[in-house]
Every structure is written in structure tokens, then in C-alpha cells.
Computed example of a mutant assay.
Amino acid sequence: MEGMAGTRSRLVWAVNLAALLLVLLWTIPTLGLLISSFRDRDQISASGWWKAALPAEQNVIFRAPPPETAVPEGAAWVLDGNVFGEGGGSVAAFGLSAREPKAFAPGDTATGRAGDTLTVAGDGAFRITYPQAPEAGRGDRIFVTTTTPPRLTLENYETVIVAQGLGRAFLNTFTVTIPATVIPILIAAFAAYALAWMRFPGRALILACIVGLLVVPLQMTLIPLLRLHNAIGLDKGYLGIWLAHTAFGLPMAVYLLRNYIAGLPREIIESARVDGATDFEIFRRIVLPLSFPALASFAIFQFLWVWNDLLVATVFLGNAPDQLVMTGVLRELLGSLGGEWEILAASAFVSISMPLLVFFGLQRYLVRGLLAGSVKGG
């Protein structure tokens, strides 16, 4: 017995560690995306998101003004300026060549090949001194290693929501997702109750057809369904995409809810019928309240699927600017702003924020509804 108890304890620890590892694998990238969405382009290019709380070090090549702009000062000619221009920053080191960009500390004096000297202060102010009047030409290159204090900004979110049209796409996605989640739940709940507790000819055949529809690839139905929409006058609009998402989500919804409803205590249903309750009253007053975990489980899956959908939205809604959903906008941003990671990070996190809220808000019903719907039958 002691050996069995010890083995079980080790198994519990192994399961807990594995679950913790899976949680970390899912959470760490999301955390990195969130932090990156508040950083600007220079910070993202200078350091990883895990160093967001530390000063960022970056190598910058600054081109000094032309030598002929130097002004005489005593026997020498002097050229003053600031490597940061009107902005601010801190210089960690500087150099005269790409091979040694950190050869000198702030405040040191570096001597060039022509005898000119360069001094760069910690605040970026530099002073170039020429022993004689310099000839006209290009300004000297100054290799500067800067340190920028950590800074978080909301400018990325302002850009994607206002300038990039993600705010309008967010509303469009809501307009598509809410009805496309509610409509199949309503239809599937009625159908599931009928298949679970009502007796009528062909019930088993209907259930078999529903199970068979679960394995039909969505992509095979797009062209026939689009032709049907065009034949009956449903142009690309919200009504068409609501019906499409309803059709694609109904088989899973009916199957899941039917298994759950069929597992409800038979005594409750029969007692209600003895008391004279109709099927609609039993469904509304008994079945629906008891089936809330299964309804919430399907609502999570349907919401996440419709919210993250791109293919169905492209086929049945179109690509007009006033019709684009968030996945469509993200696709265009990825093509036009592929190098601006701060904009893409903010856009991606705006896109996943609502699914995260829905999942964490209803997660307590998810496992209970799925387990009950998978092991019970009638």
C-alpha cells in the first residue's frame, strides 16, 4: 500500500508539472505579445520583450553636419551639435569607426586621422575641433551607443484603431459574431431536446445524418452554398454570413447538446409530464436551466471560431473597407506593415482580447459541459 500511495503521489506531481508547463507555453507568448504592443519600434528592434523593464542599448550612426559649417574659435574651427537632435537620450559609448563603435566613453576626446578631435558628452552633445579651416565635404560619421530608458506607450493602439481601421473592423466582427453564435444555439437547443426526449419516426436517421455532417470539410461546401445564396438573392452581407456560420455550426451544436440533454434525470422530465407540462414548458423551465453548462461550452467554441474566421468572412461578406472583419484587416496589415512589429503586436492583441475575455468568463462551464455531453447518452 505504501508503494502504491507513493506512486500515486509521484503521478500527481508529474501531472501537475505537465499542466504547469502547458500553461506556461501558452501564456508566455501572449505575455510577450502584450508587452510588445506597448513598445515603440526602436525599443522592439533594440531588445526583446523580456527586457522591456530595462534600459535599451542601441548602436546608432550619426552623420555630423558638413565641415564647412564649422565656425572659427580662436586658432581652431569648431562644430557643435547633438547626436539626438531635438530629442533626448543617454550616450553609453562612442567611436570613430564601425570596427570600434565603443572605443571611447562619454566625455573622452577622440583624435581623427586629419588631426581633428571629437568629444561626445553623456547627453549627446558633441564638439568637433579642426586645427585649420576644413574643406567642404560630407560630415564625419559618429558611431554612438545609446541607452534609452524603458517607456510604454498607447500610440500603437491609437494607430491601429483609428488610422488602420481596426476599430471599424472590431465592430464589424461583433456584428458577425454575436448573431452567428446565438442563432445556432437557439436552433440546436430545440433540435437537441426533440432528438433526446420526443418520439417520432426517423429520429435515429436524423441523428445519424447530423453525426455524418461533422466530418464534412467546410471548404467543400463554400462554392455550393455561395451559389445558393446568389440564386435566392442573398448578396454579400451580414444576413448571408449569419446563415453560413449557423449552417456550419449546427451539426456540432446539435450533437453536443443532444448528448447532454439526453443525460438529464428521466424522473424530472416524467414528473413534469405527469403534472401536465407541455414539451415547450419542459424545455423552457427545466431543460434550458439545467443545460446551461453545455450551452456555454458550445457558445465558447462557436464564438472563438467565428471571431477568428477569415475564409467564410472573405467568401460571404466581401473585402470592402466597411465590411472587413478583424482577421481581414490583420491580413492586410501583415502585407503592408510586415516590418512594423509594434503595430502588428497591438493589432493582434486587440484581436485576441475579446476571445480571452469570453474564454476566461465561461471557462468554469467548459469542461463540465463537454464531459457531460461526451459520456452520457439516451
Rank of each mutant, 00 (worst) to 15 (best):
Q43C: 04
T69S: 15
N59Q: 14
L31M: 13
T30V: 10
A56P: 00
P55K: 07
E135F: 13
L54N: 12
L33I: 14
R99E: 15
G85D: 02
A125V: 10
P55Y: 05
E68I: 15
E100D: 10
I44R: 14
Q58L: 14
R63G: 03
T30W: 09
F38Q: 03
T117N: 03
E73D: 15
A76I: 04
D108W: 01
G137W: 08
G124Y: 07
F94Y: 14
P72A: 15
S90L: 11
L118N: 02
V91W: 07
F143M: 04
L33Q: 10
S90H: 10
V120D: 00
A121T: 15
G139N: 10
W77T: 01
P66H: 07
T119K: 01
E57P: 05
E73C: 12
S45H: 09
F38M: 07
P134M: 04
V91C: 09
G89C: 11
T119Y: 00
L54Y: 09
A52Q: 03
A103P: 05
D123G: 11
V71I: 15
N82I: 13
F38I: 06
P67V: 12
F126E: 00
R39P: 11
A64Y: 14
D116G: 10
G85H: 05
L31Y: 09
D40Y: 05
E135R: 11
G74E: 00
E57N: 13
F94K: 00
A76Q: 05
S37P: 07
I35V: 15
T117F: 02
G122Q: 09
S45F: 11
D123Y: 06
T30P: 06
A136K: 14
I35F: 11
I128G: 03
A92C: 06
G88I: 12
A64P: 09
L79E: 01
F62I: 01
P55R: 05
W50V: 05
S36E: 13
S47D: 08
I128V: 12
Q58A: 13
N59H: 10
R113M: 04
A53H: 14
R39Q: 13
A93N: 00
S47I: 13
T30Y: 08
G48L: 06
A56E: 00
P106T: 08
D40K: 06
I142W: 01
A76N: 12
I142T: 03
P106I: 13
G107S: 05
G81W: 14
A92G: 11
E135I: 09
P72G: 15
G115Y: 02
T109Y: 01
P101D: 00
T109R: 12
F62P: 00
G87L: 01
P55F: 07
S37Q: 05
P131S: 02
F94T: 00
G124Q: 07
L96Y: 04
G112A: 12
L79Y: 06
D40P: 03
V78C: 05
A121F: 10
T129N: 00
K102M: 08
R113N: 07
P106M: 06
D40M: 03
A125C: 08
G85M: 05
A92S: 15
G87W: 03
P65K: 12
V71K: 14
S37G: 12
E68D: 13
A70G: 11
A56C: 03
D42V: 11
W50R: 02
A105G: 02
F143G: 03
P65S: 13
L118Q: 02
G137Q: 06
G89Q: 11
T30D: 08
E100Y: 08
A121S: 15
E135C: 09
P66S: 11
G85L: 07
